[in-house]
Amino acid sequence: MERGINNERNGNQGLLRRIAGTGLSARLLLGAALIVLPIVTAALGRSYVVYLYSLVMVYVIVTLGLNILTGYTGQISIGHAGFMAVAAYTSAILTGRFGVPFSLALIVASLLAAALGLGLGVPALRLQGHYLAIATLGFGVAVGQLSASWDKLTGGYQGMKAPVAAILGFRFDTDLKYYYLVLVLTWLSVEAAQNMLCSRPGRALMAVRDSEVAAQAMGINLAKYKVTAFAVSAFYAGIAGVLHAHLTRYVSPYDFNMGVSMTLLSAIVVGGLGSVPGSILGAVFMTILPHVFSRVKNLPLILAGLSLILVVLFLPYGLVSLPLKIKSAALRARARRATKSGNA
């Protein structure tokens, strides 16, 4: 796992700055595109695609969260969908049954997920590698089983409805309206993660990943930062879980099964471990794949597995490193040509 990690300074700088060179103008450009795109899509009568955009962003948030834990801190989680599930059900129950405002439910549910992350992080301190993988797997399975069998609270396998999200009386009752809510929260999540990762706590997390002994010798409390990583990561999963619930307006055990946890793990590896843009790329790739190839049964899964293998073999730093790889290949080719013509 450790080998596949990349987080060059550049990789940690603003995602937008990286995508289109530098500065504010690039950010504005991307921002404008993200604002206009769904309007155009909706105008073309493709409301489902707008829904899909929102879904992609929901997965961007949780993938980013998982990357903070696994890519940046080196702690694996194979049950991350469990955190999404807890927050999704919490929000659905709070808003649907108790009439709690959506914004409050979002905060409470995400904090509950974070608290669970903290709770799982403490025993995880004693575990490493495979053992941590199994413990988190157990968590994911347990949440799934619980949500399926606790009929009274969750509606069992039939699931439960989640009401339309509303903030201060404004109802996000169309795919387009909800898209903007998700966009704002995704943007904030990405910025916050980016900021945190390039400052003192972010460096400490990466130090824990790169060398536990050296990190301790620098005064970094391993336990504190590992548990923090679990909590932050679960918080992100919580936000995503809540947004997912009110996007589909429905929560069921199938939404957050082990398959989802595996997809998330694949997303960070395919996109790029220890990279914010990588998290985004991975989430986009893994979310869109099943919808593009949905006509052929099982094809998306096969493609997902294949892309995972190809990335691990040929792009250990993930899709995010592809441009760099192409650039260096081009440079090498040019150097070869130069020596050839030099000899002639």
Binding site: I5, N7, R203, A207, D210, S211, I220, G274
Partner: peptide, 12 residues
Amino acid sequence: FRGQTVLDNVMI
């Protein structure tokens, strides 16, 4: 901290 820059190492 091999994944990080030299400056980051010293900052840690």
